[in-house]
Write a protein that binds this DNA or RNA. Sequence first.
DNA 1: CTCTCGATGCGCT
DNA 2: GCGCATCGAGAGA
Length: 195
Amino acid sequence: MTPLPREFYARDTLLVARELLGQRLVRWLNGERLSGRIVEVEAYIGETDQACHASCGRTARNAVMYGPPGHAYVYLIYGMHHCLNVVTEREGFPAAVLIRALEPLEGVATMRRLRPGRPDRELTNGPAKLCQALDIDRTFNGIDLCARGPLFIEAGTPVNETNVGTGPRVGVRGDERALTAPWRFFVRGNPFVSR
DNA sequence: CTCTCGATGCGCT
DNA sequence: GCGCATCGAGAGA
């Protein structure tokens, strides 16, 4: 329907991360609407966060994180997988939320075709898996998620506080703070949460 | 189910 | 040249 407004993203990253749970990620692919409910995210906040791609300062790769909020930051990892983030906070401050898992809602048949041989629970239960299921690659890096384009986030079903789980981020490296900060948020008990 | 390990491209030092 | 915000195959239990 309507993309979430830029003001949604132009806030504290931990608040945005928490409130992204339950929202709906929408992807238009060849005239078909694919979508999923966001059930797991992680926050990456500023140059002092050693797990953040901006921890070594601004580069060509992480430039989008320094830009205005509400844009997609998509990167290639391990030479073969893509990960989707949404840029948060004010322009000039590098921060983003990684979308780690979705519960498939629309276009499941197409997702199955894009991830052949996988059971339904493994269509979108990881950051690179969901990019594969929704056909998201680096050509989406920098696109505006607040426009009615091929990729955006719209209002979904809110997640009650008692159903929100938190914990340290997955697969990160860095100092004690990076390893232990509880900046991963997920919907408790949801079968599509990764790991 | 759990664990281990290799794949593979590219941005950065 | 190194190292990565991951995934999936294969082995074992």
